[in-house]
Write a protein that binds this DNA or RNA. Structure first.
Length: 574
DNA sequence: GGGGGAATATTAT
DNA sequence: TTCCAATAATATTCCCCC
């Protein structure tokens, strides 16, 4: 059914009818998908779209033959582990859609007057909070890495070129985009699309240097600008505009001109009253262009009305497909089906969509945001031998320690990430009672987590530390941590019952009472951490005999209970 | 039933 | 020949334990 025909029908129906109409369409589509699943190869559009990658429908690709490109990608991928994995992913999304439609069946006949009133109240209150006082600009450098490379090698400008390697591209120039070559695409696929493609390796220092120049321009117009990456930032131009004769549009032209003069690079920009709108706008006239969304309610509502859901930052490929399955394609659809969506979606997702429909979002640059996790991960030729796995883990711990040193951080939650050769992802983590940062300490805990997953054949390993604190802070050092416990304002831990003594301290690992100085205490904790590997073996033997397979939630080994004698007694006796 | 931690899933650059 | 990245944040779901 073509779109205009569909719109025509929709406009003649009541709200409930519209939803039922689109939902029944969906059910038919789902049946089609089911039939597709019975074929030897998936041919559904959703799957090919998934395979094509996350940026398949992005800027610079309007005039390319998408079907032809998707076919080349499909042929190049067929038979690989990645392909099979994507197929499973695609099926999982279909299942999720089925679940949503089941939910829909249960509520479709209910009277939703009450819901509609609630939602309208919510909309009214959001409307009252609408802030039109700010002027935000989102600036995005055009094909940044590629453009920086072209500065040193101008001959590349007229040739299709991409920055990255055979396994992954970071970006491509506009010449290459004509062939469907784009960021987040593996290089070997890109070469199939465009055999004459020139691959340029990454030069991070160059991009950093270029970024510094660009940022020095941002700084002049908003000293509190919020960088999102090397090539992207939000500027709040409100203050600058107050003491300037320029219109917002003119000012941003000036900023882009200055960026170009300083760096020889071009940028695109969006200007609006908040971050979300500015970001959407910066996509409209790229490359080397800008778009201004007048800062008044009706302009904003008009602008959002026909916007495809996928244009909203935060709505990715999966959400787009799931919502499309219930007939939501544009922001206007969100409003039309607001009552049903309020019952179908989680409150957070629902509120996010309503705010999107209204064109409302924050215009804050929360400057005091602190990092919540830090990690390193590496892809490599498959390994499965436990010795090799541990060696890899050890290397990663060293890298992470260096990063922690550089950032002066410590943390309490250690996690490992494994990507099997099948592309299945496993993440395991453990919170310990004391803050750690040394490679050795992280390794001891992570090794225990890794052991539980054996045997595995993996193509990627990662390690992450979270629940972070700055190293110099009051909580650094385990003794200070226990003083904090005694003040009773630390997160609940197994050691909470230790609050009686002030002179004595209880080891967070083995629970034994110690009367020691800081150094002795640290040594003790180190020893205890050493034992965690033994503990993990015991845990494993106690719980189950299934090996290797991912442990679903219901099969997860039981945690050692607080008062359980076995393990602790074991240590005390030995 | 609810709080909290861990696992899973999605998104973004 | 090679055959799909690295890092971080947030939301949601699952499960254990009070």
């Amino acid at each position: 059914m073509n779109e205009s025909h569909s719109d025509e029908i929709l406009s003649q129906l009541t709200e409930e009818d519209v939803f039922q109409e689109s939902a029944s369409q969906i059910i038919e589509e789902e049946e089609d998908v089911f039939l597709d699943d019975c074929e030897l190869e998936p041919t559904g559009g959703s799957f090919r779209n998934l395979l094509a990658g996350p940026s398949a429908n992005k800027a610079g690709l309007q005039h390319v033959d998408k079907d032809k490109i998707n076919n080349i990608i499909y042929e190049a991928s067929k038979g690989t582990s990645f392909f099979e994995h994507q197929k499973r992913h695609d099926e999982a999304i279909s299942k999720r859609i089925d679940g949503l439609l089941e939910k829909y069946k249960l509520i479709k006949d209910k009277d939703l007057t009450h819901e509609r009133i609630m939602v309208d109240t919510m909309i009214q209150s959001l409307e009252e909070s609408r802030d039109l006082s700010q002027c935000i600009c989102h600036i995005d450098m055009d094909a940044f890495y590629a453009s920086v490379e072209e500065l040193e090698r101008p001959e590349l400008k007229t040739k299709p070129m991409a920055v990255g390697d055979l396994s992954m591209l970071c970006t491509s120039n506009y010449e290459a985009r004509k062939y469907g070559v784009r960021s987040a695409m593996p290089g070997f696929i890109a070469l199939k699309l465009c055999p004459s493609l020139e691959l340029v390796p990454l030069h991070p220092q160059k991009y950093k240097a270029a970024s510094d120049i660009v940022r020095s321009v941002f700084m002049k117009y908003d000293p509190h600008f919020m960088p999102m990456s090397l090539d992207e930032a939000y500027l709040n131009l409100t203050e600058y505009l107050k003491q300037s004769e320029l219109t917002p549009y003119q000012l941003v032209e000036q900023i882009r001109r200055e960026i170009h003069e300083a760096s020889q690079l071009t940028a695109s920009a969006g200007i609006a009253c908040n971050n979300m709108l500015a970001k959407i706008c910066s996509d409209i006239n790229k490359p080397n262009g800008q778009y201004y969304l007048p800062i008044n309610r009706s302009s904003i509502m008009d602008f959002m009305k026909d916007l495809k859901l996928r244009s909203i930052p935060g709505v990715g490929r999966v959400t787009e497909r799931v919502l499309e399955a219930v007939g939501i394609r544009t922001c206007a659809d969100i409003y039309t089906h607001r009552a049903l969506l309020s019952k179908l979606l989680t409150p957070i997702t629902f509120q996010f969509l309503i705010k999107s429909y209204l064109g409302i979002s924050s215009s804050d640059f929360n400057s005091d945001s602190i990092r919540k996790s830090i990690s390193v991960e590496r892809t490599f030729p498959a390994i499965s031998h436990p010795v090799a796995l541990n060696k890899k883990l050890e290397e990663l711990c060293q890298l992470l320690e260096a990063d922690l040193e550089k950032n002066q951080l410590v943390g309490r939650n250690i996690g490992i990430k494994l990507k099997l050769v099948s592309f299945e992802m496993r993440v395991r983590s453990k919170t310990v009672s004391s803050y750690i940062w040394k490679a050795d300490d992280m390794y001891r805990i992570a090794e225990g987590l890794l052991k539980n997953e054996l045997p595995v054949n993996i193509r990627l390993m990662g390690i992450r530390l979270s629940t972070l604190k700055p190293r110099g802070s009051e909580d650094e050092g385990v003794l200070k941590y226990f003083k904090k416990v005694n003040r009773n304002d630390s997160p609940p831990q197994e050691s909470d019952h230790v609050q009686q003594e002030t002179m004595e301290v209880t080891c967070p690992i083995c629970q034994s009472q110690l009367q020691v100085d800081n150094d002795a205490f640290n040594r003790h904790v180190d020893e205890c951490l050493n034992r965690t590997e033994v503990k993990s073996i015991l845990d494993k033997n106690n719980s189950q005999s299934t090996t290797g397979r991912k442990k679903p939630y219901h099969k997860r080994p039981k945690r050692t209970k607080k008062g359980e004698p076995s393990l602790l007694d074991y240590y005390k006796k030995t």
